[in-house]
Write a protein that binds this DNA or RNA. Structure first.
Length: 277
DNA sequence: ACCCTCACCTGCACGC
DNA sequence: TGCGTGCAGGTGAGGG
């Protein structure tokens, strides 16, 4: 489920629900969730640590601990966090359990088994390879129009593939990339090195507008500790995407049927009339 | 250094 | 109803 807005919403929920809680014990049920360590070491590094706060970098959720370590987590496709109280059984695909000092449990559940966790020294967090290569945060000053224009010129890939490359722009995934291209009016197959300054400026605004809109939407949703999924879509027609998953439906601008395209093995949705160049 | 395909899993919607 | 197929919001490894 997660692109930047969903991860941001999950992060905020987690921060409000587990900040200052102490991890009494931790269990890694599926060792491959944290391939750099063993279940025993994983538990030892987390046991007795207090969670200072929970924050986000790109699509990673980071638990800052008071033992000078940070737990890096990635939901990938189907990872979810839940907080359960005594009496509630673990969900079917529970891969890690964190027992908290208020007798609740923080659960990591992941149907498709793609999620990842890693524990690092907080002082070296920025050196961790998953974090080090990420592009600047879209809402940071470092993510400027000049930055975007520079990286656009340095690639020859299609703009759609470029937008989901986390080392170029971080936080966009397959859904919001289509959405950004639509509101910017850019053809998903356009090569990035041929994008005009005007188009670059529209993309720059589009990226931030789409992400901001989705984060704001998610921020208004009630927090359900039993399902901190951060699901922003599917909450009613007002949250529907403009183009994603709408093949054949009329474009909201021009009513022409939207089309689906395959790029790098993944679906892109767009309007042939509104995104011609 | 780039680009592309595949692999990692389970479940769901679809057509026969 | 059952079975096969293709698809799913992410990313890294490994090939060319």
């Amino acid at each position: 489920m997660p692109e930047l807005p969903e991860v941001e919403v999950v992060t905020r929920s987690l921060d409000s629900l587990v900040k200052k809680r102490r991890i009494v014990a931790a269990r890694l049920l599926r060792p491959r969730l944290a391939p750099d360590t063993t279940p025993r070491k994983f538990a030892a590094k987390l046991s007795d640590a207090r969670i200072n706060f929970v924050h986000r970098r790109g699509k990673h959720i980071l638990f800052d601990l008071d033992n000078n370590r940070t737990l890096i987590t990635h939901l990938r496709m189907s990872g979810r966090f839940l907080i359960l109280s005594n009496g509630n059984a673990d969900p079917k695909f529970t891969h890690a359990v964190f027992y908290l000092d208020d007798d609740s449990r923080l659960i990591f559940d992941d149907q498709r088994h793609f999620g990842l966790m890693k524990i690092v020294e907080t002082a070296k967090l920025h050196e961790a390879k998953e974090i080090a290569k990420l592009a600047p945060e879209p809402f940071s000053e470092a993510f400027s129009l000049g930055y975007l224009q520079g990286v656009l010129k340095s690639s020859k890939r299609s703009i759609k593939e470029f937008l989901i490359d986390q080392t170029k722009v971080c936080g966009l995934g397959n859904i919001y990339a289509s959405e950004c291209l639509f509101i910017a009016g850019v053809d998903p197959e356009k090569r990035t090195d041929t994008i005009s300054p005007r188009q670059a400026a529209r993309l720059y605004e589009g990226i931030r507008e789409i992400l901001r809109e989705a984060v704001d939407l998610g921020a208004t949703l009630p927090i359900d500790p039993k399902d901190i999924g951060g699901s922003i879509y599917g909450n009613g027609p007002e949250t529907a995407w403009r183009v994603y998953d709408r093949e054949g439906e009329p474009c909201v601008n021009c009513s022409r049927p939207l089309v689906r395209l395959k790029q790098a093995g993944r679906s892109t949705y767009y309007c042939r009339r509104c995104q011609r160049s």
